[in-house]
């Protein structure tokens, strides 16, 4: 960052001060670090104990372990449903993030450029975020009902017949009722990776997830839009004018100027939406349940049912730990590598 007051004397003084302050800053961060650590690591340690136990129950906290120690994790890896859940969560998160972030960005640009009715559109796109997932899940279940939902609108409005006329195919999507998994690579993986024979599910994209992605994006796209609107508003007007003078106009302005400036906002949005995607539970539970052949099942639903319906607390705890470790491996190093200087 170019800085007018960077004289050697000041730099030396600044470094001295910073060195002196470092422990103080650490000290000031310590209380919240400590309490978060208790709520995260101490509680997780307890969960690890449950996950390794042979028969832990809420009313009888018996931490005697399984033999071998990894037995519960082994059971989990060989569970076809959990495999489907991992597949679904990856597919769902990727599509949901892409749709919400990309559409959120475009909505932000469109709303930002509006001269009037800005409040209306901003409000409309943001309002779904205020609603409880339990109710929106039911509404989306109705909307994706292949008989009386959106399909009925398509039929009565003539869109269906026009589509059929043009393409020769009927426009009757099954939405969440679809059992189809496209792009299955499981047989390929079984052949090329050692131990691939444990794969019991089709590793592809379950079409039923498309409807779920649409519903979830409906609810959170507005949040992404708001983050980007905040970012767009933070770009000073002179930047725009300078780039205009340089001959960057329209799309090129957005690609070469706006998008780089919005990167810290995109990063925050991606992290927050990833966290939402991985905890996605109420919406899908109310909307489609587990789906045909677990096409829309999620790790959250698996943990919930394994712990409180099947009463296998140890397996449920193991599943939640596997999820935590996978997320930590994917998301956290990415964040940690980006110091505050880089995002500036």
């Amino acid at each position: 960052m170019p800085d007018a007051v960077t004289t050697p004397r000041v730099v030396a003084c600044r470094q001295r001060r910073r060195r002196r302050r470092v422990p103080q800053a650490a000290l000031l961060l310590a209380p919240s670090f400590l309490i978060v650590s208790i709520f995260v690591y101490v509680f997780i340690a307890y969960t690890v104990g449950v996950a390794l136990s042979s028969n832990w129950k809420p009313g009888k906290a018996d931490f005697s372990t399984t033999d071998p120690l990894y037995a519960n994790f082994d059971a989990l890896i060989n569970n076809g449903r959990f495999q489907a859940d991992l597949r679904n969560t990856v597919v769902f998160t990727l599509f949901f993030l892409t749709l919400s972030v990309v559409a959120g960005f475009f909505l932000a640009v469109l709303v930002h450029n509006l001269l009037w009715a800005r409040g209306f559109f901003r409000g409309l796109f943001l309002l779904p975020y205020a609603l409880s997932f339990i109710a929106t899940g039911v509404v989306w279940r109705w909307l994706f009902n292949p008989e009386s939902g959106i399909n009925l609108l398509l039929r009565t409005s003539g869109v269906s017949s026009a589509y059929q006329h043009l393409t020769g195919h009927a426009l009757q999507p099954d939405w969440t009722s679809s059992p189809v998994v496209v792009g299955d690579v499981s047989s390929l993986l079984e052949r090329i990776i050692p131990g691939g024979h444990i794969i019991q599910v089709q590793l592809g994209i379950p079409l039923a997830l498309v409807a779920v992605v649409l519903a979830a994006s409906w609810q959170l796209m507005g949040f992404a839009m708001a983050m980007f609107l905040a970012g767009l508003a933070s770009i000073p007007e002179d930047v725009r004018e300078a780039s205009m003078i340089d001959g960057a106009s329209g799309p090129r302005y957005y690609v070469s100027v706006v998008i780089p400036l919005l990167r810290p906002f995109a990063l925050t949005t991606v992290v927050i939406l990833t966290h939402v995607a991985l905890k996605m539970f109420d919406l899908i539970y109310a909307m489609s349940g587990s789906g045909i052949g677990f096409a829309t099942d999620m790790p959250g639903i698996f943990v919930y049912e394994t712990m409180f319906k099947a009463l296998q607390y140890n397996i449920g705890a193991a599943a939640s730990l596997v999820m935590l470790v996978l997320v930590t491996l994917v998301v956290v190093p990415y964040l940690a590598r980006r110091g505050p200087q880089e995002t500036a």
Partner: peptide, 15 residues
């Protein structure tokens, strides 16, 4: 910071 961020992703059901 990283250690605190993990807190975002902890599975509430099991803690």
């Amino acid at each position: 910071f990283t250690l605190m961020l993990v807190g975002m992703f902890i599975p509430y059901q099991s803690i």
